[in-house]
């Protein structure tokens, strides 16, 4: 067993975990952060995507012990104080969710993209979500939602997201 310390959505966490535990299981089973989904368990579908130090990763492929000392963001941290982020609102406005099972991972991949590139091109958006499978939407509305979020963020630098420093 190993004791690790890390932050999740800004909260400091400590856990004692077996070496074989994945970050995904740590989040879901220990920390009850079930917004992060498991769709395949082998890093192929992207449903388990979270941000590790700002970058999207598939949490089913990372061992919990590897997350020691890191800063993790999950879908539960995306809305703050019950207020949706610009990205979340754009997903609603564009109809970018159907069954919703891929949505948390999709939003985290999009969040990682907007952190890196505030005004992504169509190709950059597709590249960013190419590892996130969605069987319902046909992706078009998801791409539009990310474009809409980027546009709204660039127009509204006083927005909450900008204040939070989340679309650097």
């Amino acid at each position: 067993m190993h004791t690790i310390r890390f932050t999740v959505n800004g909260h400091v966490e400590q856990a004692t975990v077996p070496a074989t535990m994945t970050l995904l299981d740590l989040l879901r089973d220990r920390l009850a952060l079930t917004g992060t989904k498991e769709g395949c368990g082998i890093g192929e579908c992207g449903a388990c995507t979270v941000l590790l130090n700002g970058n999207p990763i598939t949490s089913c492929l990372m061992l919990a012990v590897e997350a020691d000392g890191s800063d993790i963001e999950t879908i539960e941290g995306e809305a703050i104080g019950g207020e949706l982020s610009v990205l979340q609102q754009a997903f609603i406005d564009e109809g970018a969710t159907q069954c919703g099972f891929c949505t948390p991972g999709m939003i985290m991949s999009a969040r990682g993209l907007l952190n890196r590139i505030p005004d992504p091109s169509h190709e950059e958006i597709i590249e960013a979500i190419a590892g996130n499978l969605c069987r319902c939407t046909g992706y078009e509305a998801i791409i539009s939602a990310i474009q809409l979020a980027a546009a709204r963020l660039s127009q509204d630098i006083g927005s909450r997201d900008a204040q939070e420093g989340r679309a650097r």
Partner: peptide
Amino acid sequence: IPRADAIDKVTGSASYTHDLC
């Protein structure tokens, strides 16, 4: 009209059988 379930789904609070414990 936007989907009524969208807010649960974009926040990760939509609970699936997958999540049930």
